[in-house]
Simulated assay, not measured.
Amino acid sequence: MNILVINSGSSSIKFQLIQMPSKTLICSGLVERIGEKDAILNYKTDIVNLKKTHPIKNHNDGLTRVVNLLLDVDKGVIKNTDEIAIVGHRVVHGGNSFSNTTLITEDVKGQIGEFAALAPLHNPNNLIGIEVAEALFPNAKQAAIFDTAFFQTLPEKAKKYAIPNELYKKHKIQVYGFHGTSHKFVSEKAIQYLKLKTSKIITIHLGNGCSMTAVVDGKSVDHNLGFTPSNGLIMGTRSGDIDHAIVFYLVNSLGYSLEKVNTLLNKESGMYGLTGYSDLRDIQAQAEKGNEDCQLALAMNAYRIKKYIGAYVAAMNGLDAIVFTAGIGENSSVIRAMVCENMDYFGIEIDKSINELRSSEIREINTSSAKTKVLVIPTNEELEIAKQAYNLVNSL
Rank of each mutant, 00 (worst) to 15 (best):
P55A: 05
M235F: 03
L69G: 06
T105A: 04
K387A: 11
F151Y: 04
V374C: 02
S253Q: 14
M20S: 04
V323G: 04
Q16Y: 06
D74L: 13
K51E: 13
I56E: 01
D344R: 11
I86E: 00
G35S: 05
A133K: 06
N80Y: 11
I13A: 04
S199R: 11
S257E: 06
D241C: 14
T148R: 03
I242N: 10
K109T: 12
Q174M: 15
S353E: 14
E134R: 09
Q192K: 15
G310E: 01
E330P: 06
Y43F: 12
Y308V: 03
E341I: 11
L319N: 05
L17I: 14
G94N: 01
G9Y: 00
A119E: 05
V334D: 09
Q192I: 15
L280S: 03
K109C: 11
L41F: 08
V31L: 08
T24G: 07
G329M: 03
V87H: 00
N125L: 09
N366I: 04
S220H: 02
E292A: 12
I104T: 09
K260M: 14
G310P: 07
E364I: 07
Q16L: 11
V5S: 02
T53F: 12
T237I: 14
D74M: 13
T64V: 09
K195E: 15
I322F: 01
C340N: 07
N58L: 12
G180S: 04
D243I: 14
L254K: 12
G327S: 06
I234R: 00
N123P: 03
Q19P: 07
T379R: 02
T101A: 15
R238L: 14
A311D: 03
S278T: 14
L264H: 11
K57E: 01
V77A: 09
Q286S: 14
V261C: 08
S239T: 15
N96Y: 07
G310L: 08
K109D: 08
V87R: 00
K184D: 05
L357D: 12
K44I: 13
D72N: 07
L274N: 10
H183K: 06
E268D: 11
I191C: 06
I128S: 12
M271N: 00
S12G: 08
Y312W: 14
G310S: 05
Y303Q: 08
R238H: 08
G94P: 00
V108M: 13
N7A: 10
G240F: 10
S8P: 07
R281L: 13
L4R: 07
N60W: 08
N7G: 09
E361N: 15
A389C: 08
G273F: 05
M271L: 15
G177R: 00
D46A: 10
A311C: 05
Y193P: 10
G94I: 05
L167Y: 10
F150Y: 15
Y168C: 05
I112L: 09
G180M: 05
I335D: 04
F248V: 12
G310H: 06
A299P: 03
V323Q: 01
S278I: 14
Y43E: 04
E134M: 12
N139H: 13
C210E: 02
A140V: 02
V323K: 04
V221L: 01
V247C: 15
K157E: 13
K371P: 10
K169V: 15
G327K: 00
Y345N: 10
A135S: 13
K195D: 13
R336K: 10
E32V: 08
I350H: 01
T263R: 05
N317K: 01
V334R: 00
M338F: 04
A162H: 12
E166I: 09
G95M: 13
K14P: 10
